[in-house]
Amino acid sequence: MSTEDGERSGRPKEVATDENVKKIHKMIFKDSKLKLNKIADTLKISIECVYHIIYEYLGMRKLCAKWVPRELTFDEK
């Protein structure tokens, strides 16, 4: 009898994969007014994970109903 867990099938532990980050970035680039629940429904992941990817990995935040980078350049302001 072993006390170690074997490999399990199912969802990956980490949802913030490079593939998901790229997909979300591409979706936001096409439509900056996209809502979190629309992205979550499309990618079949939770809204919290989508928000985490956008905020932490892409460095964006919602401003006037659009996703924009947190640090704007002088020309963007």
Rank of each mutant, 00 (worst) to 15 (best):
I47K: 14
E7K: 15
I28M: 04
D31H: 07
L36I: 13
E71N: 14
K33G: 11
I54V: 12
M27G: 05
M27L: 13
F74S: 13
M1T: 12
R11Q: 12
D75T: 07
G59F: 03
E71G: 00
K62Y: 00
K23H: 10
K35G: 01
E71I: 15
E48Q: 06
L63D: 02
W67D: 03
D18F: 03
S32N: 12
N20C: 06
E4K: 07
N37S: 01
A16D: 04
F29I: 12
I47E: 12
D41C: 09
Y51M: 00
L72S: 14
D31T: 08
M27K: 04
M27C: 06
E48P: 03
A65Y: 13
H25K: 10
Y55W: 12
A40Q: 04
E71R: 15
L36N: 08
A65M: 11
G10W: 04
P69N: 05
V15G: 02
L36V: 14
N20P: 05
Y57R: 14
M27F: 10
K62D: 00
Y55C: 07
P69W: 02
M1Q: 08
K33I: 09
E7R: 14
D41L: 05
K26V: 06
V15M: 02
D5S: 12
H52R: 14
E71V: 15
L58E: 05
K22D: 10
G10K: 02
E76V: 00
E4D: 11
W67V: 06
R61S: 03
N37C: 06
L63H: 08
K35Q: 03
H52W: 04
K35W: 12
P69I: 08
K77P: 05
A16F: 05
S2H: 11
T73D: 09
R70M: 12
I45F: 05
L63Y: 08
Y51R: 07
F29E: 15
L43C: 04
A40R: 09
I24F: 05
F29V: 15
E14G: 00
D18M: 04
K23N: 07
I39F: 05
I53S: 01
V50W: 02
H52L: 05
N20H: 14
T73E: 09
R11Y: 10
E48V: 13
V21Q: 00
K13W: 01
L36Y: 10
